[in-house]
């Protein structure tokens, strides 16, 4: 069946004392394998929450999430860890690199627990950081750091690549480079890539566009003609 990722009536409610915040309400959608799916919405819409749930980083309050035939939402902690380890590559908005490790080591720390990793050096080279392997994050610029983060995610050879506003802190050119990288993963390597952004212009490159608004799915769009990122201007 086509649906690789499936959300079914997912609700996420945060409780902090008496304060109840409904981050997601009755979210349902599907993503097919090898697609680039872009999730758009304004700040605070619930995009990150959605991605976190999908990436096994957070639990849902109700509903179900499937990756292929596996019900992610039914996983226990251990299974979730394994899920994160093997199947997911996560790229954070604020990179979240290990400050004490070099670029290379930052990638290795992820790849060394994977069964079938891509060699760290190789992947770093492929993101264009071949000559920055031994620099610490503090010695790298924002874009470089983000690329290391991506390399880290990619090195795991995951089934699903989840990116939370990967270009949020980057300039136009660098951002485009990153996005190209991601696009190539999907196009060339058939990886399912889910990208969160609040930049609507990027939706052109997606195969599927999910719009979130106030914690609910506003619309799900399938893009028959995804455009290459090089051609997108904003």
């Amino acid at each position: 069946m086509g649906a690789f990722v499936r959300f079914e009536n997912v609700c996420k409610i945060y409780r902090s004392g008496d304060v109840k915040v409904t981050a997601l309400h009755d979210v349902s959608f599907e993503i097919e394998k090898g697609e680039i799916c872009i999730i758009v919405g304004q700040s605070g819409a619930g995009k990150t929450t959605l991605l976190n749930i999908l990436g096994g980083m957070d639990t849902l309050t109700s509903g179900r999430v499937f990756l292929g035939d596996d019900e992610i939402s039914a996983y226990d902690k251990h299974q979730l860890t394994a899920y994160r380890r093997k199947d997911i590559g996560f790229v954070f908005q604020f990179y979240n690199l290990m400050p004490n490790l070099t670029a290379l080591e930052n990638v290795e720390i992820a790849s060394q627990i994977t069964d079938n990793p891509i060699p760290a050096e190789q992947i770093l080279k492929s993101v264009g950081l071949g000559d920055r392997l031994n620099n610490f994050p503090a010695q790298l610029s924002g874009g470089e750091q983000q690329r290391v983060a991506i390399a880290r995610a990619l090195a795991k050879n995951p089934k699903l690549l989840l990116c939370d506003e990967p270009t949020g802190a980057l300039d136009y050119q660098t951002g485009k480079q990153i996005l190209k990288l991601l696009q190539d993963q999907s196009r060339k390597n058939g990886m399912t890539v889910v990208i969160i952004t609040h930049n609507s212009a990027l939706t052109a490159m997606a195969d599927r566009i999910i719009r979130i608004k106030s914690g609910t799915v506003y619309s799900i769009q399938k893009n028959e003609n995804p455009v290459s990122i090089e051609e997108i201007e904003w």
Binding site: M57, T81, A82, R84, R85, F92, N96, A110, I113
Partner: peptide, 14 residues
Amino acid sequence: RTQIGILKALGYSN
């Protein structure tokens, strides 16, 4: 805390 989160996110076991 954050680092623990990252490691967890990367899939390191508890």
